[in-house]
Amino acid sequence: MQERRDGQQETSRRGFLAAGIYGLGSIIAGSLGITSALYLLRGPRKKRGTEWADAADASVLRAGAPAKITFNRTRVDGWKISNQKDTAWLIRNVDGSLTAFSPLCTHLGCAYQWRAEAGPSKNGAFVCPCHGSSFSRTGQVITGPANRPLDRYEVKREGERIWLGSLVKTPRSNA
């Protein structure tokens, strides 16, 4: 009887010690794991406002055809701040408003070009040389494999100068 009681006490003691080892170990692993996951997987804390770049003169706009413009903008890349060249396709819409497209195909990021004879009505389209995606002058997908419209820069006009702001990713549902 006494031996049985001793055996039960020993089992209980070993269970307590094992629970302590696994419990404390889990707290340590959990704390380090959560800190590491936050560090690696969550983006930088600071969200930046729109940085407008003086991109082009309104005279670059030609009737009916998009204009490819190159402009300088300040890029904050991690800890680096650089003044680098950027490119955009600028187009005047029917209502007189302006649209500026990112120069990268929304499929896999190749640089596309404007082809005046492409498109279903042969009235021009943006064509990607990599996998053949094409987009209308409003940025909508004409042929895949791209599955969402061209991304756009925020754009504003001040007098004869055209300013570009942040890049706005276009969601797939707009396609």
């Binding site: 800190t35 590491s36 936050l38 560090y39 969550r42 804390r45 991690g78 800890w79 680096k80």
Partner: peptide, 26 residues
């Protein structure tokens, strides 16, 4: 997140401490 050159080390460490999530903790 650390760039091991004298030109970038301080800037990247400042970035870790001030901007990277849990960077100050790390």
């Amino acid at each position: 997140n650390y760039s091991p050159t004298p030109g970038d080390a301080y800037g990247s460490l400042t970035y870790i401490v001030r901007e990277v999530s849990a960077g100050k903790m790390m």
